[in-house]
């Protein structure tokens, strides 16, 4: 029988998910908003406009920023204290975190090799997703996982 989750688990994972949700919401607003400043940044490597207007900024017609919002909403719900106590959600939460970090790997690849620029806001989302994956992985491992029936 798995142990009770540690005290730090629910607050930290909810906080990370909420931070990711805030960043993704900002990027979604920026995606649909007309560019306010028709200017180039001082450096060419860090160029959010170039990243967020690239072909890789959408997946099957859906902006990846919107996918990020959906992902972090799901993670907020899956990381609430009651959800951590519900053993049935263990695999769901772990799978979500795994899908999230897998998508981050793809997006970093796209930024580096397909677009050729990075967006600091996107990088912040990637860092949050990676931290969330690590927190969920270690918390789940420390607690133990229910055996599938």
């Amino acid at each position: 029988m798995p142990d009770e989750p540690r005290r730090w688990v629910a607050p930290s994972t909810v906080a990370l998910s909420a931070a990711g949700l805030a960043l993704s919401t900002y990027l979604t607003i920026e995606h649909f908003r007309d560019p306010g400043t028709l200017a180039c940044p001082a450096t060419a490597t860090v160029n959010c406009a170039r990243v967020t207007t690239s072909a890789q900024a959408t997946l099957l017609g859906v902006p990846v920023a919107v996918l990020g919002v959906v992902f972090f909403v799901a993670m907020v719900l899956a990381c609430l204290p009651f959800a951590w106590r519900d053993l049935r959600l263990t695999w769901v939460r772990a799978a979500l975190a795994g899908v999230g970090v897998g998508f981050v790997i793809y997006l970093v690849y796209a930024e580096l090799f397909l677009v050729g620029s990075i967006c600091l806001w996107c990088t912040a989302v990637h860092a949050v997703t990676l931290a969330l994956f690590a927190a969920v992985a270690f918390a789940t491992a420390a607690r133990g996982v229910p055996r599938p029936r």
């Binding site: 970090v101 981050v104 790997i105 970093v108 690849y109 580096l112 090799f113 990676l130 994956f133 690590a134 992985a137 270690f138 789940t140 491992a141 420390a142 133990g144 996982v145």
Partner: peptide, 21 residues
């Protein structure tokens, strides 16, 4: 064993991202 597995998964992702950079 589970914690080592989790560490390997997280470390693998970090290494993969670092390798891409």
């Amino acid at each position: 064993k589970r914690i080592r597995l989790a560490g390997a998964a997280v470390g693998g992702v970090v290494l993969l991202l670092a390798a891409m950079v």
